[in-house]
Design a protein around this nucleic acid. Sequence first.
DNA 1: AGTATATCTGTCTTTACCTCA
DNA 2: CTTGAGGTAAAGACAGATATA
Length: 299
Amino acid sequence: MMGLHQDPSDSGLQLILGLALTATPEDTITPSPPSISNNLHHHHLTTLRPNSYSSKSSFISTSNSEPEPSLTLGLSRETYRQQVVKLPRNIGHNKVSSEDPLEQTSPHSAISSFSSGRVKRERDLSCEEADATETERVSSRASDEEEDGTTARKKLRLTKEQSALLEESFKQHSTLNPKQKQALAKQLSLRPRQVEVWFQNRRARTKLKQTEVDCEFLKKCCETLTDENRRLQKELQELKALKLAQPLYMPMSAATLTMCPACERLGGGVGGGASAKSPFSMAPKPHFFNPFANPSAAC
DNA sequence: AGTATATCTGTCTTTACCTCA
DNA sequence: CTTGAGGTAAAGACAGATATA
């Protein structure tokens, strides 16, 4: 839970916010607790619009009748020229050449030897290759064009059916063991690696969304506390003014002193009729109740 | 049992492709 | 038609856990 420290010796309000929020239904599948400090600077806050894509792309063929892969690997001449021109830039940005779409999409391609040092990636690929052997037998995803190495990296678009099945699976478990991955890939006519990546990204989106929710919550807390701080400052000013208006010394009988129930410190008369008569009646308003606040913070 | 190495799998971050306003 | 923003698939880098020699 959030904690609030209010230093009584300081006129300002000192906030120490911690976070361990109650999980939302969606968050119950989030594998790790949200880390507010970690990503807020890196992610622009946006609202998620699932299924925001329509299937209008001229490059993408979708089939609603069966979970057929949505990717058509053919490129127009123009597109192909653009892709080829882009390639050197890609390589320049990425230190590692295994990003090379040719290699990525076609482990068999001779160009895959261009990869310089990514042992792990190559390992993955070879593993995936084995994984995907069966899958790709039934999939049109690994098309002829990939095999002759003429296609650049092409973005996959999942069909509604594929997305729905993935979502359904994600609801059941946000991570997959190899067996589940394999089965799901087969069911979706995707490569296991694609299923894996989808789950990775899905987890990331869930986390980002939760971070946004947490951020909003903290903003509201901050606003509330700022208001309360303002109110208390004002109250303090009023009391100071009142004190100046009073005689310097005013004997106060013990009977007028009562305990603050929260912190058991002696204070001016609080309860009963006496407090109403006392010029030191200090609570024109009830103590602000903040579930996160120290119970005696207002004393 | 303790250690070094390999492998797997996760997160974080970035890149690139694609769609839409 | 162009452009910029946003969504998302996929990549690299890295860390931690686990298996094995």
